[in-house]
């Protein structure tokens, strides 16, 4: 391998790692909800679409950037509490599969509603970040990706601090640990779930803005849920650290595989490679890299 091939490989690797951060960004939203309520929220992708579409449509109607952001966040808060009230509360104590299927239905509703309200055309989204790649030691790095990675890191740090140093964060952890015990000591489950869904809505908003700036705001934005699922499986459904590491591994190996393995099988393997990789990891560790092992009782 010559020096330039080596540089190229590094460049692919770095690009992959950075795009992996974008996957993690979506995956964190899943982890938040899974940790505290045991629900695999398939609607996370449609929430990303909903948030991005709402924000873009407000900006296009001449509302200032900051105000649009605020309104969109308010809408996501309302959405989170509505979902808790209408969908989750009647389904308390039902099997996780039932709840998953409910979020599948939910994703249909949110997607449909978002597009019915704001139309189906593609919107461009300019966050004012210029996407000119710059060079570090002969390797091209996209500044946009780097900024996205920074935002993701800040968000993870913020969420972790929130989880560990605030009262409500403590309540989150209590609920995640044992719902019945949490109820017994007087924690209000509905309010906590509403808050968690709001937090997930906030993550969806951030992910929606970054992905939207990348791909344009359109229906396919909700399909990033399919990119996030293998990340979750790889990292474990209930670990924020897992979502980050999983995202990095998936992002890097996916790009490397596409470049070095793709030509042998005709390319286009990005659609399923992540799943195959996640499966291989699962066969060795059935609850992901960082997921909690379930204890089985009869």
């Amino acid at each position: 391998m010559s020096y330039y091939d080596f540089l190229f490989a590094i460049e692919v690797l770095v690009g992959g790692l950075l795009s992996g951060v974008m996957y993690s960004l979506v995956a964190i939203g899943f982890v938040l909800i899974y940790k505290t309520s045991g629900v695999l929220n398939f609607a996370q992708g449609s929430m990303v679409l909903f948030a991005a579409l709402t924000f873009v449509s407000l900006v296009e109607r001449g509302i200032p950037f900051a105000l649009s952001l605020l309104i969109t966040f308010a809408v996501m808060v309302a959405l989170g509490f509505t979902i808790e009230r209408i969908v989750l509360r009647p389904l308390v104590n039902r099997s996780p599969m039932t709840l998953f299927m409910a979020t599948l239905g939910l994703s249909y509703i949110i997607e449909g509603a978002a597009q019915l309200m704001w139309g189906t055309q593609v919107h461009g989204l300019d966050l004012g970040i210029d996407d000119t790649p710059f060079e570090v030691g002969g390797i091209l790095i996209s500044s946009f990706d780097l900024l996205a990675a920074g935002i993701a890191a800040a968000m993870v740090a913020g969420l972790s601090a929130f989880f560990y140093w605030t009262r409500i964060g403590l309540a989150f952890r209590a609920v995640a640990d044992d719902q019945f015990a949490a109820l017994a000591v007087g924690l209000r489950l509905p309010r906590i779930w509403g808050t968690v869904w709001t937090a997930a809505g906030f993550v969806a908003l951030v992910a929606g803005l970054l992905w939207g700036a990348r791909l344009g705001v359109q229906f396919s934005l909700s399909l990033i849920v399919l990119k996030a699922l293998p990340v979750l499986v790889l990292g474990g459904f209930d670990s924020i650290l897992g979502a980050i590491v999983g995202g990095l591994i998936i992002g890097a190996s996916e790009k490397l595989a596409e470049v070095y393995l793709g030509p042998f099988v005709g390319g286009g393997i990005e659609g399923w490679f992540a799943y195959a990789l996640a499966l291989v990891v699962l066969l060795v560790r059935p609850s992901g890299l960082f997921g909690q092992k379930t204890v089985e009782r009869v």
Partner: peptide
């Protein structure tokens, strides 16, 4: 159609 279908799924599950 998507909205009604999704709503029906949730209604049936509940």
């Amino acid at each position: 159609q998507r909205i009604v279908l999704g709503a029906l799924i949730i209604i049936f599950l509940i």
